[in-house]
């Protein structure tokens, strides 16, 4: 079974919002109709977005770290939003695991958004239906596009390449390897929704060097011209 998903590397994300704007651009131009913008040029501009980048400050100054946190539908393997839908407008595709809303069946009761713990569904105030990330289902299968362009628009837009896209059920896919080897985790595991999207943690690259590794242990201070240090461990010669 295929489960398409995004893997977002928080170590790489710089918080530029390119994924947000490209997502909005692609999804507002599609056959499903425009994503509403209310008061775009006035006070309190707001509208429908499938993807948002939030920013958090971790720690206390001066030991702080700024974490940019892109947030979109996690395409859960056990989505809380789907079984509650009274009309069947919300559904999870069997063939690739994408969670979608059929805008023609949605009655706009908002019940699915109450059931989702992540707040990634947004009610469109103009179309009066629930909307959400589609993983760009209208471009990832589009054979008129060159194969390397058949990816969600947020993935294509990301300048540092913080967003990976692929099948998390295929153990050898780029996303599965990234999750496995770089500590991929899911959000709110306690909600038991089994999100398909994963996040890769912030990490610092460090190399552990022991002090004796800084010297040639067989004759360090004579050959390399390093100053004599009586705290150094004895050389092989001295031991013999």
């Amino acid at each position: 079974m295929t489960q398409l998903a995004l893997v977002i590397d928080l170590n790489v994300c710089v918080g530029c919002h390119a994924c947000v704007t490209n997502c909005k651009q692609w999804n507002t131009s599609g056959a499903a109709g425009a994503l509403v913008d209310c008061n775009p040029y006035e006070q309190d501009p707001n509208g429908t977005f499938f993807n948002r980048v939030q920013t958090f400050e971790v720690g206390e100054f001066p030991q702080t770290e700024t974490v940019h946190f892109p947030k979109s539908c996690l395409h859960c393997e056990d989505p809380a939003c789907v079984p509650v839908c009274p009309t069947g407008a919300s559904y999870k595709r069997k063939e690739d695991g994408i969670v979608l809303v059929d805008y023609d069946k949605c009655i706009g009761c908002k019940y699915c958004s109450w059931a989702c713990p992540y707040g990634v569904r947004e009610f469109d105030e103009q179309r009066k239906v629930m909307t959400k990330c589609t993983l760009c289902v209208d471009r990832i299968y589009d054979e008129s596009l060159p194969e390397e362009r058949r990816k969600p628009s947020c993935v294509l837009a990301c300048p540092p390449g913080a967003r990976l896209f692929g099948d998390v059920h295929d153990p050898d896919s780029e996303v599965s390897v990234a999750i496995r080897e770089r500590g991929g985790y899911t959000l709110m595991p306690e909600a038991n929704t089994k999100p398909a999207n994963h996040y890769l943690p912030r990490r610092k690259t460090t190399v552990t060097v022991r002090s004796d590794e800084l010297y040639r242990s067989d004759n360090p201070h004579k050959i390399d011209g390093a100053p004599f240090d009586k705290n150094l461990p004895p050389t092989t010669e001295e031991l013999n």
């Binding site: 501009p45 707001n46 920013t55 958090f56 400050e57 971790v58 713990p117 947004e122 943690p201």
Partner: peptide
């Protein structure tokens, strides 16, 4: 759920600085 499980970062002090929009959202 806590902010720590919500974004998956283990630190007792996390403060939100932006929520992706200025004028509110759904």
């Amino acid at each position: 759920s806590t902010l720590q499980t919500a974004i998956g970062i283990r630190h007792p002090r996390i403060v939100q600085k932006s929520q992706g929009s200025m004028g509110g959202s759904y």
